[in-house]
Simulated scan of single mutants.
Amino acid sequence: MSTLQEKTPRVRAVRGDKAHTARPRGRNGSRLTRQQSRAGWLLLTPALLHSSFFLAVPALAAVFLSFTNYDFSGAWQFIGAENYVELFQDARFQAALRNTILYTIVVVPLAMILALLIALGLNQKIRGLGFFRTVYYLPVVTATVAVASVWLWIYHPGAGLANAVGSLFGMARSEWLNDPGTALPALMAVGIWQGLGAKMIVYLAALQGVSKELLEAANLDGANRWQVFRNVIWPALGPAHYFVLITAIVQTFQVFDLVFVMTKGGPVNSTTVLTFDIYNNAFEGLRLGYASAETVIMLILVAAFIYLGGRSQRKNQDA
């Protein structure tokens, strides 16, 4: 009898009473979800306010000013698309656009590859691991002006370290930053070197999160190092790849300090990038409307690069 009584609630739960008893749980569950949603939006509010005030509002202002001839004098006139038409007829803007795109497509993949290789090396059990991690990360926390000043000495045509090392291998002395053919590659090298630490830290954290069980299973199956990397480690790094890619694209489009300190956009506009040209047009030429049009084009380029980068990353993960 007692056994039958114990089974009765279970039978009711399986039959029609199940829906009746499940409703309170559903309401409680949905109420808990709404509470979590409200808490989430509450926590996001400071960041959303910051983004709206310091990012969205200036972006909208730049779009509006790009259709005017505002020049800091207080007076302005709506001129339509004249700024954009003039931009694409401006040789300096064309050089800045070309240099920025070239800088991005060279620096981003090379920096990601080198950072991943360094992270793989620092993920091993070697002596002095903490020292090496600190050394690689040190350029990230060093002021860009200080970094640029050191590299100015390295690239010095007479007493610089670059020519001294090159002479040991029979290379001819180069002007580096004074030669239009080598100035931009020289800046690329500095940009890659300075950004390695931040990317390396992200990859290192991702590598330490790779499933130990999968690694052990792959080793037990007789997989070699390349097979382990290709089939276990590489797929696990997908989110890290995406994060590093997006942040690297944004950073390369924002390069300014290196150009300002090391080359001033020269020689012959060979290192002029969009941010430096925007600065010149806005604060030296006092053409804020024209500089705003250039800013809008840069924002569109950044969005396009991020979209293409994210799309390619998703394809790699699916493959």
Score class of each variant (00 low, 15 high):
T3R: 12
T3V: 13
T3D: 09
Q5E: 08
Q5K: 05
E6T: 08
K7T: 10
K7H: 13
A13P: 12
V14N: 08
V14G: 11
V14M: 08
K18P: 06
T21D: 11
R23M: 11
G26P: 03
G29L: 06
S30P: 09
R31H: 09
T33K: 04
Q35P: 05
Q36T: 04
S37E: 15
R38P: 12
W41S: 07
L42V: 10
L44C: 15
H50D: 11
F53K: 02
F54P: 15
L55F: 10
P58L: 12
A61S: 11
F64P: 04
N69C: 08
Y70Q: 08
D71N: 09
S73N: 10
F78L: 13
I79T: 10
G80S: 14
G80T: 02
E82P: 13
V85M: 07
F88K: 05
A95Q: 04
L97N: 09
R98F: 02
N99V: 07
N99C: 09
T100Q: 12
I101H: 12
Y103C: 09
I105Y: 04
V107S: 12
P109V: 07
L110D: 14
M112W: 01
L114G: 14
L114M: 07
I118M: 08
A119N: 09
Q124D: 06
I126L: 15
G128Y: 01
R133G: 06
V135Q: 07
P139Q: 10
T142S: 15
T142H: 05
A146R: 00
V147A: 12
V150H: 02
V150I: 03
W151A: 09
L152R: 15
L152C: 04
W153M: 12
A159M: 04
G166A: 03
S167Y: 03
S174C: 11
E175N: 15
W176D: 12
L177H: 00
P180M: 11
T182Q: 14
L184R: 02
L187M: 14
L187Y: 00
G191S: 07
G191M: 03
G191F: 03
I192V: 11
W193D: 11
Q194Y: 00
A198E: 13
K199I: 01
M200I: 04
I201K: 03
V202N: 10
V202P: 04
Y203L: 04
A205E: 07
E213C: 05
L215R: 03
L215K: 01
E216T: 02
L220D: 15
L220Q: 11
G222E: 08
N224F: 11
N224G: 14
R225I: 06
R225H: 08
V232A: 06
V232C: 08
I233H: 01
A236F: 01
G238L: 14
P239R: 03
Y242C: 15
Y242V: 09
V244Y: 03
A248W: 00
A248E: 14
I249H: 02
I249S: 13
F256E: 09
M262L: 07
M262E: 02
K264P: 11
G265W: 00
N269V: 04
S270D: 12
T272H: 12
L274C: 06
D277W: 06
I278E: 10
A282D: 04
R287T: 07
A293S: 10
E294W: 06
I297C: 13
M298W: 02
I306P: 02
I306K: 04
Y307V: 04
L308G: 05
D318P: 04
A319D: 09
